[in-house]
Structures are given as structure tokens and as C-alpha cells.
Amino acid sequence: MIGAVMTDKHSDTRWQVLPAARRARRLAETLAAALLLVLFASALSACGSQAPGTLRLATTTSTYDSGLLDDLLPDFEETYSVQVEVIAVGTGQALALGERGDADVLLVHDRRREEAFLQAGYAESRDPVMFNDFVLVGPPSDPAGIGGLDSAAQALAAIAGQQAPFVSRGDQSGTHGRELSLWEAAGLEPDPAGGWYFAIGQGMAATLRFADEKAAYALTDRGTFLALRDKLPGLVILLGGGQLSENPDPELRNPYGVLVVKASAGREVQSDLARTFAAWLTSLPTQQRIARFGLERYGQPLFYPDSLAWRQARGE
């Protein structure tokens, strides 16, 4: 201690001779302290997991943007007195969040990657929840002439043949995954350097805006397109019909699944709450609510219930 005091005294007198150096050092110390504080705070918020009674749900943008979750979640939050934090991202990021234990439960739509996620041991269960469908939209002039076709793969081949502009999500989302498997089915691999295939790496709404501006084709889920239709004067549904029952291509069906993230060392997740959520989401009352959602506003459901409980109740 004495040594320290003496050093301080010593340096104090030296600094009086050099006030500028002293000020500079004070400034540096303050900055360093502030930086440490910020680092400490961010470390705290990263480690200190969410409060008990908070469930973190990572889901695709379509369930959130369509308003479905706002319609469903209050019932869950009241019944179980929990708070649900919704992280609306692409399926790719939702799965990445689950892998890191940053989300407790996932509601996503990419069957292939969901199975892989389950196989890799990141999730303890995967249950079907609901489905809707994809449609191909484009300008009314339809330069590639896909209007009369009944296969999405054929339509993509026609678009590529004409080199008509096509906008891709390009963001590893569930919709992007489906688009890629459709290209594969068509036996084609679109080249982003070709000048007609735009991979923009953005969400569904941004992709539709882009298509509207560029008079381009795009693959979209029907719900998002219906919700944004008023703001997209330059786009119409060219393949997929007016509603799901009119969609000619079964390959365009879009099933959603709920995944309960498995807890393990380094991934502390709220497994109990997550299990409760999955059970609630697939239960008959919630499924009936899903079936009713959007009927009034769009004249058709945006999502079709598909859980085991729902199918059993219907005698399937």
C-alpha cells in the first residue's frame, strides 16, 4: 500500500509538469473503463438467461407477419402465465438459434432441414402443426407464359428459358429451400451472374417489393402475398390458383413443424415450457383457432391445421 501511495505521489508531481499527458491518461482510463463496463454488461446479458416464465420462440417471418402469432399467443400466455418472446427470422436462422440454445422452441417450415436438425440431436421432438401453400407470382403480362401450367418446376424451366427476371429469397429460409428443390426438380441451376436471377438475401416482403419493381417472378407463401397484395400493384398469382384447394401442384404444399430444442451442456433451454407450448399448439382448441384465422379478412384461411389431434378429431 505504502509503495502504491508513494508511486502515486511521485507520478502526481510528474504529471503536474505535464498536464496534457495527465489529461490524456485520464481520458484513456475513462474510455477503457467505459469499454469494460459495456463488455461486462453485454457478457451479463448474454449469460444471465431470460427470466423464468419467459419462453423464446424462433419462427419464420410468415407466421409473425401474417398476424397468426398475435392471434394465438395471448391465450397461451394467459393460460400458463408466461411471456413468449418471438424472434421472427428465416428458417435457417431459427434453426441456428436453436442449435446455439438461443431459442427454446422453433416453429419452422423446411421438412428436410427439420429432420436433419432432429437427427443431429438438437431437438427432442418434431410435430406437424399446420400447412399452407406456395404460389408463383409475377407481372400480369407473364412473359414466360407460366399462367396455364400446373407444375412449378415446369414454370421455372419456362422462366429460365425466357431468361425472364426472377427474384429469389436467397437467404436459406424455408421458402428459399423450397425454391431450390423446385429448380432441382426442373434440372436447372440458375446462375446469379446471368442478369435475370436476383438472389437478394432478404425477407418475403422485401422480395415481393423487389419483384413488383422489377416486373419479375417470385415464389412466395400465399399468406404473405395476400397480406401485402394491396401494396403490390404489379404482381398477380400466376400459378397456384385463388386458394389452396385450387393449387395444381402438390409440390407447392408448405408444412410447418414445431421443434422442442433439447437441453444439453452449454445449451440451457426451457424444455418443460417448450414441451407445454408444443402440446398447446397442436391441441384441438388451438388448431381450431388456426383454421379460423384470416377467414374474415381474406375470405380464406391462411393456415390449415394439421396436427395429430386435429386429424384424429376429423377421423383421419
Binding site: Q93, G201, Q202
Partner: peptide
Amino acid sequence: MLVGGNVEGSTRVLSTAIVLETRQGA
């Protein structure tokens, strides 16, 4: 992002690519 559109091979720059990769969990 707004005016370029983050188009692969045309308007994707470092800053928009960072947003894209983060969104994808990469």
C-alpha cells in the same frame, strides 16, 4: 440495403453481406 437490394453478384457489398450472414445464423 434499401436501394441496392443486396443482389448476389451485383449489389451485395460487405455491409449488406454481414446482415445477410447474421440473419442466416452464419
